[in-house]
Design a protein around this nucleic acid. Structure first.
Length: 323
DNA sequence: TAGGTCAAGCGGGGTT
DNA sequence: AACCCCGCTTGACCTA
């Protein structure tokens, strides 16, 4: 459709509905709008709402009983001072006027009820507050646009907060991963050192795992768990003195266990993760991350553990045995 | 005076 | 064709 709609025979571009014909000067315009005897929606710079460009309200508190809540200016009322100019062919460009606070409040309430505008409702609203139906439609359109903008801002803030949270979790996980990697490396070093020392001090192979009957009081599966739990409960910096104490009956078993195969650090890493809830000193993640983190860990890490890490997955019912 | 706000214009698309 | 809605823009006005 071509622009420049025509309403009630007046082109909106040059003559706004409910608006006086433009005066030849802003001073004239103001004086024209200063209320004297007119009912509602007449106003001027001295009107109650200082923020309104032009306040149409009846600031004199005139009796409006028997009238609609708001009443627009009739064209006859508008023409007073400008008739001459208009007839002479003068026509000032339109002066935009803000709706009054009362009008806006009325429209806002209506908007809260329903932000779409049926034709009947539009006409009704227009009558109620003394505006042209077209103005009501425009106000609702602009109001919907503002509402949409605000909603977008809200959604953006919400998504950004979500992103920030996830990023914090991710960073924390990265830190934890690095820490656990370092711990695994440290443990491997200790293992190799202890291995060498034991080989030097007991060259006769007293504790060869292949014929280790004397030191097998604990079943293999349980022994593995003992080793893992002890490892995990120790702070990496404390060098696991108990674990590597040569007096320990599990000492040699640990040393020759394939659990901490130096070639597979991921196993150690993964096993350690399974014991987060037991570790006090290394619970960086637990102290930082929300419970969601752990549920996610379970979802993402334990639903389908790698086959080669099965020996690290503690059976739930085993845990009370160790703790 | 720059930037924000708001009523209104404009043009395109959809519906009846 | 008339009407409506939407996105974008314009222009008047306000404010820091």
């Amino acid at each position: 459709m071509a622009g420049g709609r025509v309403y009630n025979g007046s082109n909106m571009t040059t003559l706004l509905p409910n608006e006086n014909l433009a005066s030849s000067s802003s001073r004239l315009l103001e004086s024209f709008w200063i209320p004297n005897s007119s009912p509602t929606f007449h106003g001027g710079p001295s009107a109650s709402s200082s923020k309104s460009m032009v306040n149409y309200e009846n600031v004199h508190g005139g009796d409006t009983s028997g009238r609609p809540l708001f009443q627009s200016l009739g064209k006859d009322e508008n023409m007073d001072d400008d008739d001459d100019d208009f007839n002479k062919g003068f026509r000032q460009p339109e002066k935009k006027r803000r709706l009054t606070a009362s009008q806006v409040q009325f429209l806002e309430k209506s908007f809260e009820v329903e932000n779409k505008l049926e034709p009947e409702r539009k006409v009704q609203l227009a009558k109620e507050i003394g505006l042209q139906p077209r103005q009501i439609a425009i106000w609702f359109q602009n109001r919907r646009a503002r509402h949409k903008t605000k909603q977008l801002e809200k959604d953006f803030d919400s998504l950004k907060a979500c992103y920030d949270t996830l990023k914090a979790e991710y960073d924390s996980l990265l830190n934890q991963k690095e820490k656990l990697k370092n711990e695994a490396l440290l443990l491997k070093d200790k293992l190799s050192i202890s291995d060498k020392e034991s080989a030097n001090s007991e060259p006769c192979g007293l504790i060869n795992p292949l014929n280790a009957e004397p030191i097998k009081p604990i079943p293999n599966s349980v022994s593995e768990k003992v080793a893992m739990v002890v490892c995990k409960q120790e702070d990496a910096s404390s060098v696991k003195s108990d674990v590597f104490n040569s007096d320990s009956p599990n000492y040699t078993y640990m040393n020759h266990s394939s659990l901490l195969d130096p070639g597979d650090s991921s196993q150690a890493f993964e096993a350690d993760q399974s014991d987060f809830s037991q570790d006090d000193d290394d619970m960086l993640g637990q102290s930082v991350l929300p419970p969601l983190y752990f549920s996610k860990l379970e979802d993402e890490c334990y639903h389908d553990p790698p086959a080669n890490s099965s020996s690290f997955g503690f059976v739930v019912e085993d845990q009370p045995f160790w703790f």
